Amino acid sequence: MNVLVILIPVSLILGALGLVAFLWSLRAHQYEDLEGDAWRILTDDDQEPR
């Protein structure tokens, strides 16, 4: 039972940190262009001509 006194607050703090990180990523527009990276993989624009 004494372990629960430590584990419950630790799990709540870690959950809150995960929520804060997710909300930060939403505000930083990390999920704006979900398909752009997939199309950039298929193009050869970043390679130098030989």
Rank of each mutant, 00 (worst) to 15 (best):
L7M: 11
M1D: 08
D44F: 05
I41D: 07
M1C: 03
P9M: 12
R27M: 02
L14I: 09
F22L: 01
E35F: 05
I6R: 07
L42I: 08
L42W: 07
I13V: 03
P49M: 00
D46V: 15
D37H: 13
G18D: 04
L17E: 03
L17Y: 12
T43H: 10
I13W: 14
E35T: 09
Q47G: 08
W39Q: 10
V20D: 01
M1N: 05
G15V: 06
Y31W: 04
V20P: 01
E32L: 11
I6K: 10
Q47S: 06
R27V: 05
L19A: 07
A28K: 08
F22R: 07
E32K: 12
R50D: 08
D44N: 01
Q47T: 13
Q47R: 04
W24G: 08
V3Q: 14
L7C: 04
A38V: 00
V5L: 14
L26A: 03
D45A: 01
T43P: 11
G18Y: 14
I13F: 11
L7K: 03
D46H: 05
L7G: 06
N2L: 12
D44M: 02
L17N: 04
V5C: 07
R40N: 06
L4M: 13
L19S: 09
L12R: 04
D33S: 15
G18E: 02
Q30K: 12
A38C: 06
A38K: 13
L17W: 15
P9Q: 09
L34N: 02
L7R: 06
D37V: 01
E48K: 07
R50W: 12
V10E: 11
Q30H: 13
S25A: 02
G18A: 01
A38L: 04
W39H: 11
R50Y: 10
D44L: 04
T43V: 13
A21I: 02
E35D: 09
T43F: 14
P9I: 11
W24K: 13
E35A: 09
L34D: 01
R27W: 15
V20H: 10
L19K: 07
M1E: 08
P49Q: 00
I6G: 03
E48S: 06
